[in-house]
């Protein structure tokens, strides 16, 4: 059951992620990315991270990606123009990428043996209560700092979005 769920949503995630990269139109990429995020949310649930799963949907899929789509619609961004100038990427991009993926997979397979397994309900420490408790005790300072960061980001976005600024 867990394997089936994992395989289904991992498959969806990978296909959608490939779609993000392959699609030429930004909005198609964006919709695919929402698919990746949605399936990741399911995988988070499988890993016992229920709060993170919901936050993933609310924050990433529900807010960040809406912003993306909003901007794409606002700029009426069309399909991208093939006008590359980076010789380096053309020559080295694909080999580097394959090397990166190969190395990452190699390390993962080597470091993490197969006997540690995941099953639904194996970890229940990811409830909203547990996260809230950690957030307001151990991680209080980062939490405050990050709220400040958000404030700065809001101000930055407002300043950048002002009409007078050219």
């Amino acid at each position: 059951m867990d394997v089936v769920l994992f395989l289904i949503f991992a498959f969806i995630a990978v296909v959608a992620a490939i779609n993000v990269v392959v699609q030429t139109h930004p909005i198609a990429s964006a919709v695919s990315l929402i698919g990746v995020m949605g399936s990741l949310a399911i995988l988070y649930l499988l890993l016992g991270a229920e709060f993170i799963a919901v936050a993933q949907v609310i924050v990433y899929a529900g807010a960040v990606m809406v912003l993306f789509i909003f901007v794409i619609m606002l700029l009426n961004a069309g399909a991208e123009v093939k006008r590359g100038r980076s010789l380096l990427v053309q020559l080295l991009g694909a080999p580097l990428l394959i090397a990166l993926l190969g190395l990452l997979a190699y390390f993962v397979q080597r470091i993490f043996p197969r006997n540690v397994t995941v099953h639904f309900g194996g970890f229940t420490g990811g409830s909203a209560q547990a996260i809230g408790r950690a957030l307001f005790t151990t991680y209080l300072l980062p939490f405050e700092v990050i709220s400040l960061l958000i404030l700065i980001a809001i101000l930055g976005a407002i300043v950048l979005g002002r009409k007078e600024l050219d």
């Binding site: 919709v31 929402i34 709060f51 919901v54 936050a55 949907v57 609310i58 899929a61 529900g62 807010a63 809406v66 789509i69 909203a128």
Partner: peptide, 12 residues
């Protein structure tokens, strides 16, 4: 939270 999440997806 689930309802909030789902309703935020409704924008799409």
């Amino acid at each position: 939270l689930f309802i909030l999440a789902v309703s935020s997806m409704g924008v799409y």
